[in-house]
Nucleic acid binder design. Structure first.
Length: 209
DNA sequence: TGCCAGGCCCTCTTTAGGGCCTT
């Protein structure tokens, strides 16, 4: 895939997992993702996957994904192979991206595949843009910004959908606040990397360019 | 119910500690 093919696209993804750390043996149990092209969702991916062991009752309650649902799901390797094809080299976004990035890399490593694109974190950007939000959990930001949703949280596709809406809203707010014409993925990624105090000055310098 | 790990970021910091966020 060429740079020009991915320049105006981004994939927003979310994993549901058996726990917090692939280094501790945790595995993905669901992946959801939406492809945004020119500000519109144009494709979706959602799939449960069987991690090969029973998930805890906490995860069943937290996600609503039960062991019975996972019993008939295809194995992680099969799903992740399909998902690797879906993401290609698109730039990726996730809420608290370091978490999803760890699981993506671990699951792709299991099938000897890798991801060669870039990640940006909607949570870090939201902390810069909305410092007065009650907190920066995904559900809280959805409520704080009045983002349309179906009331489903902690399921992969539902969380991806609202994270995508948050992402697009943050692009609009960057436009309005700093008069940046169509902030690029790389600019948003730069914002997510910069310390909170450095962001206003950085964006104002960008606006003058 | 919320812990686990890991990265980011703030501050009563920098020779460190602890909160936030993800499942």
């Amino acid at each position: 895939m060429t740079t020009s093919q991915t320049a105006n696209t981004v994939i927003v993804l979310d994993f549901e997992t058996t726990g917090l750390s692939p280094n501790q043996g945790d595995r993905a149990i669901e992946i959801g993702a939406v492809l945004i092209e020119q500000g519109e969702v144009v494709d979706r991916f959602q799939q449960l996957m069987n991690p090969g062991f029973r998930v805890s009752s906490f995860i069943e309650r937290y996600t609503g994904i039960t062991n019975n649902m996972l019993r008939t799901a295809p194995p992680c390797d099969e799903v992740m192979d399909q998902f690797a094809d879906f993401i290609g080299d698109h730039n990726l976004v996730a809420h608290n991206a370091s978490f999803d990035q760890r699981f993506l890399e671990a699951e792709l490593d299991n099938i000897q595949r890798n991801y060669g694109g870039e990640f940006a974190c909607s949570m870090l950007i939201a902390r810069r843009l909305y410092p007065h939000a009650p907190n920066h959990k995904l559900g809280s930001l959805v409520e704080y910004k009045n983002i349309d949703n179906d009331g489903v949280f902690h399921r992969a596709l539902a969380d991806s959908e609202v994270t995508a809406k948050l992402w697009l809203l943050m692009l609009e707010d960057m436009d309005k606040r700093y008069q940046l014409s169509s902030p690029s993925f790389s600019l948003m990624q730069e914002v997510s990397r910069k310390a909170k105090a450095a962001v206003p000055g950085f964006l104002q310098r960008q606006a003058k360019c």
